[in-house]
């Protein structure tokens, strides 16, 4: 029997949840172990950078790459793994569309450092030490990867074959994808076309959500802790932000079913370039105060009042998709100076 196909999984800017999600597919993990040899999986096995460098190009059959591109190290690893892998999968929301790390695209590297190294309540940094790319010590020069101003998704630095959305992806979806891959490798089964989003549906989360949906007119937004949602009724109708209508299905609408509005981790649907803008546009369309007989100025004020009850719109609507959106990042300081690129 020929050698087993090689599987790799790597984390860039991520929380580690994606690794756990792979291990969370239950006894199917035994099949994975049976089918594949691990070529690189720093979370669960001891591999070194130079191990990968030593592989021939295309040595790895499937690489599940999770995490966003936050530092020069992330980018270097992305490029290395792209070269060494036949199939590169952007695994999870960070690699696919930037996710939580990319929310820092709402500010700048300097501001981020300021907060993390100087201003956080728990920080005690009297010498104002911050990470440097190069540090001179008596023994020579120490280097660290550089910290980018803008967080990117994996496909913004290398070509990606498939995207597997979710924060993290759901076990049955992970297995469904792995099954296709295994079938393709062992039995020459069909692979989806390159660039496909795999392990997710093509309709919005609402399709899977069992809550009752009615015509929506929102007069006030609430944060989850502020009200006890009425059971069985669409959360959005009750003023609780649920990004389900703008989010790909595939998760089984887990969050809305337990009274927590969909956060949007499966990303936008086919044909949507900007999930955040789409959801904001949808929400704005159903704010239902006043009517055309109201004074224009008063109407504007009424609408403003409703929208003011919506906390942190950019963080809410772009929670997962900032890097991959039309927005990509905000212009810093209004004029693009201070290191913030103009996008």
């Amino acid at each position: 029997m020929s050698e087993k196909p090689k599987l790799a999984m790597y984390w860039a800017a991520s929380c580690g949840g994606c690794e756990i999600s792979v291990l969370n597919i239950g006894d199917k993990i035994l099949i994975v172990d049976e089918v594949f040899d691990l070529a690189f999986f720093p979370c669960i096995a001891d591999f070194k950078h130079h191990d990968v460098e030593g592989y021939e190009d295309g040595y790895i059959d499937v690489c599940l790459f999770n995490g966003a591109i936050r530092t020069s190290d992330n980018e270097e690893m992305a490029k290395l793994l792209r070269k060494k892998s036949k199939v590169l999968v952007a695994y999870g929301s960070c690699a696919y569309e930037g996710c939580i790390p990319a929310l820092s695209n709402l500010t700048t590297k300097d501001e981020t450092f300021n907060t993390v190294y100087y201003e956080n309540q728990t920080i005690d940094n009297p010498n104002r030490v911050v990470p440097q790319v190069e540090t001179q010590v008596p023994e020579g020069t120490l280097t660290l990867p550089s910290f980018y101003n803008t967080v990117k998704s994996l496909d913004q630095v290398v070509d990606v074959d498939y995207y597997l959305p979710g924060c993290p992806p759901e076990p049955e979806q992970i297995w469904a994808v792995l099954e296709i891959v295994v079938n393709a490798l062992l039995n020459d089964g069909p692979l989806p076309p390159a660039g496909s989003i795999v392990g997710a549906g093509n309709v919005a989360v609402c399709e899977e959500c069992p809550l009752d949906k009615n015509v929506k007119t929102i007069t006030q937004f609430y944060r989850p802790y502020e009200i006890q949602p009425e059971p069985g009724l669409c959360l959005l109708e009750q003023g609780l932000i649920c990004v389900g209508p703008a989010t790909r299905s595939g998760c089984g609408a887990l969050c809305p079913q337990v009274g927590m509005g969909c956060r949007g981790c499966y990303g936008p649907l086919e044909g949507v370039d900007d999930q955040g803008a789409k959801m904001l546009s949808a929400i704005a369309s159903v704010v239902g105060v006043g009517d055309s007989t109201d004074d224009e100025f008063e109407l504007e004020e009424m609408i403003d009042n409703v929208m003011d009850s919506l906390a942190d719109p950019s963080g809410t609507f772009y929670r997962f998709s900032m890097a991959h959106s039309l927005l990509e990042r905000v212009k810093a300081n209004g004029n693009g100076t201070n290191g913030g690129e103009v996008k």
Partner: peptide
Amino acid sequence: ETCSGCRL
């Protein structure tokens, strides 16, 4: 095919 029936 892609309408989820969200009723927005």
